[in-house]
Amino acid sequence: MTDVRVPAPAPGTAASDGDEASKPPAWGHRTHAWDEPHGWRRFGRYALLVVITVAVLFPVYTTVVSAFKPSDKFLVNPLVPDSFTLDVIREAWTSGNLGRYLFNSTVVAIAITTAQVVTSLLSGYAFAYLRFPGRKIVFYAFLATLLVPLEATVFVNFQTIESGLTLPFSLPLIGDHIPFGGLNSFQALIVPFLATAFGTFLMRQALLDLPSDLREAARLDGIGHLGFIRHVAVPLVRPTLAALALFTFLSAWNQYLWPSLIINEADANTVQSGLRVLSKSNLDQPNLVMAGTVIAAIPILIVLIIFQKQLVRGLTAGAVKG
């Protein structure tokens, strides 16, 4: 492991930290279209695009069609939107409990995102600016945790969350036992993901990219560590923070294995584990399940549309972690 510079958020796009890289795939037109195809080639390309679009959107189409068809129609001709009802969506929302699941997912994803942004800023700052013994070793230890897949640890984490943590010593305020809320709690869904080495690196990198005399100047002005982070660093690394936040939010929202393992009460489910419950207990009503997936997909669609600008950076940022 030679000095692995934490890969800048996105090889290919991140080299320049400016707006160019963080732009979403530009849907807009370019001015010079010297290579615009003509005639048959143009037609052929359109035809190909249309065919592929149809193929890609086909699962979405069938899902939406069946989600809005009444129960007596959806099996008869699942491809034709010949009738329309909101009843199934309503049923998925109420008896399918999707409303509750969405709420839970939102709380969990926001909590994880907020916490990770804070912890990443703090530890990133520490690695960037603080000098302390063993810094290098600790840094590599952090780095190493990136290599451990969630799948290798959830097994023991389940037990930790379930029974809490008994410390060999007593801490002020906390005592010697830290309960994590047990299974089915928000804490159980949140606590293991409060910090990541990935976020730490991302922020360390962003902070190191700041002009080096900035910290010095701040120190001369009598600004402490936290003051520097709040008033100087955060405004400057905002693009990276946004990318980290979006990526964290998406991965928190999309978690499947962990919630399916630690949740066994209906009301505690996230959207993903809730969809699992909905599907496994209503396999005879595919349209209800499809309605559930439509409801589950919409909020994230909205988030993605709002944060289009951060999307590419968010995705590439996350790609480092995998």
């Binding site: 379930e162 299974l183 393992l261 066994n264 009460e265 207990s281």
Partner: peptide, 18 residues
């Protein structure tokens, strides 16, 4: 009531939990 979705899940989760 807590729906475990299937006997299999109920069994696995019963065994896994303390």
């Amino acid at each position: 009531l807590q729906n475990q979705t299937a006997y299999e899940s109920a069994i696995d989760k019963y065994i896994a939990g303390g």
